[in-house]
Every structure is written in C-alpha cells, then in structure tokens.
Design a protein around this nucleic acid. Structure first.
Length: 205
DNA sequence: AGCCAGGCTACCG
DNA sequence: CGGTAGCATGGC
C-alpha cells in the first residue's frame, strides 16, 4: 500500500536528518536518545503526565520552567498536588499560561489516578476534565509505553499538508487510525516518530 | 511589537 | 456533527 511505504520512508528520512530524539525529557536526565526504558518508576511517569498537560498549546521551554519550579517547591508529586491549594499550583506553573485551567487539570488528573489503581486506559483518561485526545495519547505513549500514535498540529501540517499523506482537515481519530493501520504497533517506533515530527515542525519557522 | 507555542472546554448553529 | 471564542504567559 502507498501510505505504508510513505510512512516508512518518511520516518527514515526524518531519522537521518534529526537523529533519535530521546523523548520524553525528564528533569533528572533530560533527553535519553535510544533509551526506551523511561519511565522507570511511577514518579517519572507522573512527571511525564504533568508535562503532557502543561504543554497544551504551550512551548516546551515554558513547561520546563514550570516543572523546575514545581520540583523546587515539592509539587511534582501526587500527594502534594492533592494537598496543595489551587493558588500554590498556579504560582508554580504560571509560566505555561492558562495557569488557572491547568492547575485544575492537574488536580482532576491526579484525583483520577488515585481513584483508579488498576490499568490505565485511553478511554478512561478521556473522561478526565482537561484531557483530550492528544494529551491522552501522549500520556499512554510516553508515560505508559502503549502504542498510541499522537496526532498534533505538526502531524497535520507536515504529514498532511506538506507530505500529502492525508487531508489535514480530517478528524483526529481518522488520522490516528489511518497512521496506526499502516505502522508496526510498536511504542518505541510511535514515540520516536512523533518526536521526529515535532523536531521537523519546530525547524520550519 | 506582534505572533505563536508539543490543546481543551463550552457553546453555537 | 463542525466551527470558534476564551484561556494567559514568555520567547523569538
């Protein structure tokens, strides 16, 4: 099939050009190229989830500042978030913008985690206020190593508009399905692919 | 000195 | 269903 070949060759091209990206970055080790064992524990997984929420329509630079501040004041922790006032959280994450909404989102998500000790699913995540399709997929893919392809604005622009692999105006779920049906369902491939698309997308500007 | 970031919800027709 | 205003700060 044509799309299958395009997806594979485009991935190879991006890999040649940008190299392995080492997503998702953690405060403790930064990027970790070629190491797909991250996260290694629940605390690291939680940091990824927090980052995924904070980076909604926000540059990673600003998210990093917020994560560092959260860490400094001890808020990069489930129990701490549940016990903190909204104002305390807002102060730590102000640099990411939308800080009132995001403070609420962090609380809603963390409450959900606590009430949900079993296996985390994409559908259950979508029921949490503040978590939409892209954030759910980012969390499943990078925090829980599940092969869920992340579709973002770069995916639409680069793969859709520029490379002509699909109509960029299609729904999130249609694009996701189309891509997933034509790639090996391997979380490491999905992690690297999405990170490479972002690298390519950031470059054009 | 604007425009735009690794989106989502609420609400409209 | 699809389309869009509002959310908000910091970087370039």
């Amino acid at each position: 099939m044509a799309l299958k070949r395009k997806l594979t060759s485009f991935y190879e091209r991006l890999l040649q050009k940008h190299g392995k990206q080492g997503w998702w970055p953690l405060l403790s080790i930064g990027y970790h190229k070629g190491d797909y064992s991250i996260p290694r524990n629940a605390k690291e997984a939680y940091e990824i989830c927090v980052g995924a929420i904070l980076t909604q329509n926000t540059s990673w630079k600003n998210v990093e500042k917020a994560l560092i501040k959260m860490d400094e004041v001890g808020l990069l922790d489930k129990k701490a978030i549940l016990n903190a006032s909204n104002e305390e959280i807002e102060n730590a994450i102000r640099a990411t913008g939308y800080y009132r909404q995001k403070a609420r989102k962090l609380k809603e998500f963390t409450t959900f985690l606590q009430n949900n000790r079993g296996e985390l699913t994409r559908d259950s995540l979508l029921g949490v206020w503040g978590i939409g399709e892209e954030t759910a997929d980012s969390i499943m893919l990078y925090a829980y190593k599940k092969a869920e392809f992340v579709v973002d604005s770069y995916t639409r622009r680069i793969m859709g508009e520029r490379e002509g692999m699909f109509n960029s105006k299609m729904s999130y779920s249609s694009i996701k399905k189309l891509i997933e049906e034509n790639l090996d369902k391997d979380y490491r491939l999905f992690q690297e692919y999405h990170a490479l698309i972002v690298a390519e997308g950031k470059e054009q500007r």
